[in-house]
Nucleic acid binder design. Structure first.
Ligand SMILES: [Zn+2]
Ligand SMILES: [Zn+2]
Ligand SMILES: [Zn+2]
Ligand SMILES: [Zn+2]
Lengths: 144, 144
DNA sequence: TTTGTTTGTGAGATTGAGTCTCAATATCAA
DNA sequence: TTGATATTGAGACTCAATCTCACAAACAAA
């Protein structure tokens, strides 16, 4: 994908510089195909001998969220979770309280209904998150 | 409302005791008509000479969430926010990134579509939260 | 009641994700 | 080059939330 030029343009337009640290973080993050947290990413970069300070990692992630590469997730109110979300289909999450499994799902009609409700209140959406807390099929069966 | 007997039954069924601290917290919380956070509640109880320790407040809130009196909200990933949610209409939130205003809204058809999607995946819902991040009408107009 | 067992409380210590500081370094435009 | 500005990294710091543990309540059985 064309993430690099898009990121560089974003940085330029906001008076930010395309440092090697920022570019390395973008690169690492765009390889992710699942949810992750900041410290996990920091340690991964460290292992790959791309030692970027914890501060820089924590400083860069909000930038990547702001320019639309990452989505900040809401499950687990202790730590922030992210997912790469550029050029991919938008999805929502079902979180199992028992086994912790996270199921991703898509619903066009859900998105449409949400869009309607948002417009009705004169609100301008940037992102949204729909998260369902409950129990997955397997866990329900186990508890019988 | 019949919160007190419902809470007592819940506690009983879970091997927990209906202590004066727990009942006082339930009482305080059920008077709330807006979003609040744990420490705020602790300080309020303190002012009213119902000195309950910070630990007990933090210990009781998850119980109240678990038995359905409170809902845990997802905006502001730094601190946990709650709202009293018993016998009231279910609603979702629009959060303005600029002024911080939180608009509550309801949509029957949104709920129905969500319910459909959940069932489709064999998931059993306990709660959910829909949160839209963006800009409110006023802030959009100001920025022109 | 009394006794023993279990559960809950409070004060303060501890944790840990995330932020801040600031001197040193990198970037960039002129 | 040079000067203005932005960024980095190491480690100090913050602060919401949790944990510890001695003591106090609640409860069940006798
Ligand atoms: Zn499960
Ligand atoms: Zn996802
Ligand atoms: Zn606003
Ligand atoms: Zn609300």
């Amino acid at each position: 994908m064309n993430t690099v030029p898009v990121f560089k343009t974003y940085l330029m337009n906001n008076g930010l510089r395309p440092t090697s640290e920022r570019m390395a973080i973008l690169s690492e993050v765009s390889k992710k195909n699942s949810h992750f947290e900041a410290d996990e990413l920091y340690l991964e970069l460290r292992k790959k001998n791309k030692s970027i300070s914890r501060a820089s990692v924590y400083r860069t992630l909000p930038i990547l969220v702001d320019c639309g590469f990452l989505r900040e997730l809401a499950f687990d109110k202790k730590r922030k979770h992210y997912e790469f979300n550029y050029g991919l289909d938008h999805h929502e999450h079902l979180v199992c309280k028992r086994c912790g499994k996270i199921i991703e799902f898509q619903s066009e009609s859900l998105e449409l209904e949400l869009e309607k409700a948002i417009k009705k209140h004169g609100f301008t959406q940037e992102t949204h998150c729909v998260e369902v807390i409950g129990y997955c099929k397997k866990c329900i069966e186990k508890d019988k």
